[in-house]
Each structure stands twice: as structure tokens, then as C-alpha cells.
């Protein structure tokens, strides 16, 4: 059970972030130079592995479990609320959904306006854009892997969950050679946000001294309650937007 608790959120969160990173990497590779792009990806992957290894191990070994649960739970709550509220806004239509194909086109256009690719040696523009893209998208995954892994005492399965997601996205990207625009990113973000908020509440609650009635079983109650509230939130935002759109549409016709 603990293994699934650590691996599942890391897997789903990584899937979403790696899809976004793949779009950037493909845009750079296709437009400029594959070799420098892949060196940038590999360097970022090593940097992320070092971050997870150093921080994950240090946190597990050095920080007392009560403090760890408050801090980690707090971070999970913060990240979870950020992911969930963005997903709610997108599901309700208050924010544009993540369109990987459009992002790919924008990246390609931007990269074509850069200096030409050097005839020999490294193309530092390819390297930098790929490195930054993978590092920034991966940093959030690293945070989730470290926090979930450390709190559940299962850093290995959390890393494995993220790695499997990375391999899947990489393999599909290599076969299709185009952005994975059909992945239901918002649905996945909604699910990850729910998991982060649920576990964040549970662990941070334990950290501040709440002995949850029903112990681990309360996780299911929290998850169900947050799901209901989030769906209600989506409905409320959507219904708030509809009256706002009607006068705007009427004004546009006049």
C-alpha cells in the first residue's frame, strides 16, 4: 500500500510534466540540432537525479519525522492547491487548456528566429533551451518525488514511478516524433492535485498533532470530500462565467 502511495502520484505527476518537457525538446531538436538538444536533456536529467538523491536522502536521514510531515505536508498542500485550482479553472473554461501542438508551433517559430546553428560543434542555444525546459518541468516532479517518497518512507518506489513515466513519454515521443497533444493533461493535473491535497492534509495534520480517526482509512474520506468540493468548485466557476459571457456576446453583436 505504502509503495503505491509513493509511486502513483510520482508516476502521474511525472507523466504530465514529461509531456510538457517533450514538447520543448522536440521543438528544439526538430528546428536546430539533435545532438546538442540531447546533451542538454541528459545534463538536466543528471541534475534532477542529483537533486532527488541529495535532498531525498538528506531529508529522510536528518529530519525528524514529525517536522518532516509538517513541512512536507505543507509543501504538498501548497503544490496541490496550485495544481488543483489551475485544473479547476481550465475545466471550467476560465483559463485556456494546455495545447501542446500550439506550444510546439510557438517554440519552433521562436527558435527559427534565433542565430543559425553552427556548422560544427555544440549548438548552445539547443543545449540551453532543452536543459532549461527539462530542468524546470522536472523540478516540480523532483519536489513531488522527494516529498511523497520521504513521507511514505518509500523514496525508491517514488523515483521508480517517475522514471517509468519518463521512459513511457520518451518512447512514445520517439515513435510519434510529435508533441503528445492527445494526453488528457488537465484530467491528470486534476487527479494529481487531488492526491497532493489529500496526502498533504493527512501528513501535515499528523505533524501538527492530529491523530486521524480511522488512521489511514481517513485518506479515502479526505479524497472523496476534496473530489466533491473540487467538482462543485468547477461547476461554480463555470456558472459564474456563463452570465458574464452572455452580455459580452450581446455587446459583440451590436
Amino acid at each position: 500500500m505504502q509503495i503505491v502511495v509513493a509511486a502513483a502520484p510520482a508516476f502521474v505527476a511525472s507523466l504530465v510534466e514529461f509531456v510538457e518537457a517533450l514538447t520543448i525538446v522536440l521543438a528544439v531538436g526538430v528546428t536546430r540540432q539533435w545532438r546538442s538538444t540531447l546533451v542538454g536533456v541528459a545534463t538536466a536529467a543528471v541534475a534532477l537525479a542529483v537533486i532527488v538523491g541529495v535532498f531525498g536522502t538528506a531529508i529522510v536521514v536528518l529530519v525528524p519525522i514529525a517536522v518532516l510531515r509538517v513541512v512536507v505536508g505543507g509543501f504538498l498542500l501548497i503544490f496541490g492547491l496550485q495544481w488543483l485550482s489551475k485544473a479547476i479553472l481550465r475545466a471550467a473554461g476560465a483559463r485556456a487548456k494546455h495545447d501542446e501542438a500550439a506550444i510546439f508551433d510557438r517554440q519552433v517559430a521562436r527558435l527559427r528566429s534565433e542565430a543559425p546553428v553552427p556548422a560544427s560543434g555544440m549548438d548552445w542555444i539547443s543545449f540551453t533551451v532543452a536543459f532549461k525546459g527539462v530542468l524546470l518541468e522536472g523540478l516540480e516532479v523532483a519536489f513531488i518525488v522527494v516529498t511523497f517518497g520521504a513521507s511514505a518512507g518509500q523514496l525508491g518506489p517514488a523515483v521508480l514511478g517517475a522514471a517509468v513515466a519518463g521512459v513511457i513519454v520518451l518512447a512514445v515521443g520517439a515513435v510519434l516524433h510529435q508533441p503528445l497533444a492527445r494526453v488528457p493533461e488537465n484530467g491528470l493535473k486534476f487527479a494529481v492535485g487531488l492526491m497532493l491535497v489529500t496526502f498533504g492534509t493527512f501528513w501535515a495534520g499528523e505533524g501538527v498533532g492530529i491523530a486521524w480517526p480511522g488512521s489511514d482509512a481517513v485518506l479515502l474520506v479526505l479524497l472523496a470530500a476534496y473530489l466533491v468540493v473540487s467538482l462543485a468548485g468547477t461547476w461554480a466557476v463555470r456558472s459564474q462565467l456563463v452570465p458574464a459571457r452572455i452580455p459580452a456576446a450581446a455587446a459583440a453583436k451590436e
Partner: peptide, 13 residues
């Protein structure tokens, strides 16, 4: 306390 924490998180969101 648990119910309070849940309600507070919902209120923040």
C-alpha cells in the same frame, strides 16, 4: 481539528 483543517484548506482554495 481534522475537520477544521479540511475546511480551512477548502476555504483557501
Amino acid at each position: 481539528v481534522g475537520a477544521f483543517l479540511f475546511a480551512a484548506v477548502v476555504a483557501v482554495g
